[in-house]
Amino acid sequence: MSEKSQLKGQTLGFEIKVCNGKARVGKLHTSHGVFDTPIFMPVGTNANVKLMRADDLKSIGVGILLGNSYHLAVKPGLDVIKIHGGLHSFMNWNGGILTDSGGFQVFSLRDLRQINDDGVLIRSPVDGSKLFLTPELSIEIQRVLGSDIVMVLDHCPGPMDSYEEALKSLRRTHQWADRCLKYGVNEGQMLFAIAQGGMYEDLRRLSAQELAKMPFDGFAVGGLSLGEEFEKTLHLTGVTVESLPIEKPRYFMGGGSPELIVHLVEIGVDMFDSVFPTRLARHGTALTFKGRLNIKSARFKDDLDPIEEGCDCIACKNYTRSYIHHLFDRGEALGGILLTNHNLRFMMRFMERLRRSIYDGTFVDLKKEVINSYVKGEGDKLCYDSVDNTVFG
């Protein structure tokens, strides 16, 4: 199955290579490469994945990064991006880039914005500047950035919003999606819509069905992983995905914990992003196939083992748990750098195993392993934190 369009000898689009139940392995064709799905995309809100260089990201197997069009339009500003020739050149990254439209800021900066059907007036938490973000301006910003995947501007409701409020935001999201589609993206860019609907099953289904009628290159599930119960996240995602075109990529926005990803892959989601692994790393927690390790724990003071046996990241190949524990104990930045490298390499290895398990029919076994490690509590388990996103990553 494939959905493709031709561009100057390049093929843009998505093809499904194999399915195992609803889980599938695919290839996402962009202007800056072809990427295997399911895929995890690190967040680089401000044109940088915290504590990582572009070369480091490439060396550990990262294919697509995220940037935030609203924050980049505020700082450094589009004029700066323009003189560099686009976001890829600005941040010295030759892989894929997906840019968020600013729609998440409609939710996360609720106290700093005013919204109506025309757009949203946002006051920057960085410098207090104001920007009236319309669907058309959001697309124009992303045109200048030159990202490979462009997200429509959407109105993301809060998890506590009433049915009436969620319906209003859904209608606005659909109107804005249509305006984004009419404004259009550059050659070589793909445009994804975002399904909303709050915590309401019928609105989730309606949003997916209506957006599926429009010629978008892919579809995202938005407005979840914002504090609702884990089972509700899964149920509402499933309701949304079952109404989206099977031949188009499905992207869950803001989900990055292994236990969440493995469940969502099972119901047919292809793409994920989150600050989850990098934020954990900066606070001293490592991700492993046996669960999470709080490296700041005193029990690692004399531990000569690597963070994870068999891991090929620079931290595991060159340093002991004891040394990294020491770095965090003394507040040394290198501790966060090494754990960030490890956690992102873990995510790449984890996604590789997911794809392989779908190919060879062992997905169910891998899912059980992840649940045993991350839900039942092997290792130093942190409580499940469904809020995988922050304003600044």
Rank of each mutant, 00 (worst) to 15 (best):
A177K: 06
G331E: 10
C316S: 07
E309F: 07
S225L: 10
G393N: 13
V74W: 01
H283D: 15
A281C: 08
L366Q: 08
V185T: 12
E228C: 08
E228F: 00
N94R: 12
T362N: 12
C19L: 08
N46Y: 03
G102T: 03
T99W: 00
L98W: 03
I314N: 06
D217I: 01
E3S: 15
L191R: 07
G102Y: 06
E309N: 11
D79K: 14
E378F: 08
R299A: 13
V239S: 14
I267N: 13
V43S: 13
S89C: 02
G256E: 01
M347D: 07
S373A: 15
G103Q: 12
E332N: 12
A177F: 10
G393C: 12
D202A: 05
P135Q: 14
G33F: 06
D273C: 11
G102P: 02
L153R: 12
R279M: 06
N92D: 15
A166N: 14
M351F: 14
L51H: 07
N389L: 14
K4L: 14
D273N: 11
S322D: 09
H88N: 14
K232H: 00
M347E: 07
S89T: 01
T390Y: 14
P306E: 10
R292T: 14
L260V: 02
A23K: 08
R321Y: 07
G291D: 04
Q189G: 07
E369P: 13
A333G: 10
H29R: 11
L65D: 00
R172T: 11
F107N: 09
S31E: 09
H283C: 05
H326W: 04
H325T: 08
S257T: 01
Q189V: 06
G96T: 13
D111S: 15
I60H: 04
H88M: 11
A47R: 05
E352Q: 11
L382C: 10
C156S: 10
L206Y: 01
T362A: 03
V370T: 09
H155C: 11
F252S: 01
A23G: 07
K8V: 02
G361F: 00
D56C: 02
K296N: 08
K82Q: 09
M347N: 02
L287F: 14
D303H: 08
C311I: 05
L137S: 09
T285R: 03
R299T: 07
A212R: 05
A220D: 00
P76E: 08
E164I: 11
S108D: 06
E332L: 04
E187I: 07
V185R: 05
V25E: 12
W93L: 14
G85S: 02
N68R: 10
F35K: 02
F40Q: 04
N46T: 02
H326R: 07
R53Y: 08
M214D: 04
L66E: 03
L191Q: 05
L244G: 06
V152L: 04
V106G: 13
E231D: 12
E309G: 01
A23Y: 09
D305M: 09
Q142I: 06
F104Y: 15
Y251G: 00
Q114M: 09
A208P: 00
S31N: 15
S124I: 03
G268F: 06
F328L: 11
L226I: 10
Q105D: 02
D56K: 04
S373R: 03
I39Q: 08
K301A: 13
